[in-house]
């Protein structure tokens, strides 16, 4: 499958076309229940992670919950 180029938190990354946000988080070893994900500036609900696939030029912002203080 072809790779597409996306930006995650400003950094360019190549991923396989058709990759879902869920799969991407797994690849990045990020627990989905501890992050907010913006896909092209739109906040995704947790249920949308597995239903959303990334396309060439997409911008993702993955914001992790910060617990310390």
């Amino acid at each position: 499958m072809n790779d597409v180029q996306i930006r995650i938190n400003g950094k360019v990354r190549e991923v396989a076309a058709g990759t879902t946000v869920s799969a991407l988080l797994q690849e990045l070893r990020i627990r989905p229940e501890t992050v907010v994900v913006e896909h092209n500036r739109k906040v995704l609900s947790g249920e949308e992670f597995s239903a959303t696939t990334v396309a060439d030029g997409d911008e993702l912002e993955v914001v992790r919950f910060v617990g310390g203080g």
């Binding site: 627990r31 229940e33 501890t34 919950f65």
Partner: peptide, 13 residues
Amino acid sequence: LLPEPPPPGVLAT
């Protein structure tokens, strides 16, 4: 933002 408290050890401290 965070629907449930994550299990111990998940969040960075």
